[in-house]
Amino acid sequence: MTSRTVFFNIVRFVFLVSFQALILNHVNLGGYINPYLYIYFILLLPFDTPKWLLLLLAFLLGWSIDIFTNTIGLNAASTVLMAFARPFVIRAISSGPESLIGDTPSLRNQGIKWFLYYSIILILLHHFALFYLEIFRFTEFPATFVRMLLSAAFTLLLVLIAEYLRYKKP
């Protein structure tokens, strides 16, 4: 991991936390659909990030978001769960050595199919933990499920747009 990568990741961390806290948390389509783009940071960490660092960064990221929404522990727990699953997901969906080209997971290097599998599984895991921890009641299961799916779709859309923007410039 070069110092360039470290620098870019710090900038990305600060940008995504501010963007989430100041703008996305105030977005609510149709009354209650809310995107959580901040987890894009975890999706984009380099393949060779040490596993302990992955978990600690996820905890720090979730905690920063929690400070702004005053839900201490909620986003941290969901993000740590998602980061924990990341190495297993990567191993499960990568068939050959060619699928791990480049430093970080990306739409361009790994292809649309790989990237969709990767982000959909992790986004759903994160959103599932987040929404069900928040209500912590099973009586509202179906309504929450719909909310979760719609929010996850919205997050995925933003992740894909961000991926295209990342490679627009040469």
Partner: peptide, 17 residues
């Protein structure tokens, strides 16, 4: 250590929550 660190961080978060 990966599993223990995960359980540790997850427990802290949930206890705080």
């Amino acid at each position: 250590y990966y599993y223990f660190l995960f359980l540790f961080l997850e427990t802290i978060s949930l206890i705080l929550f």
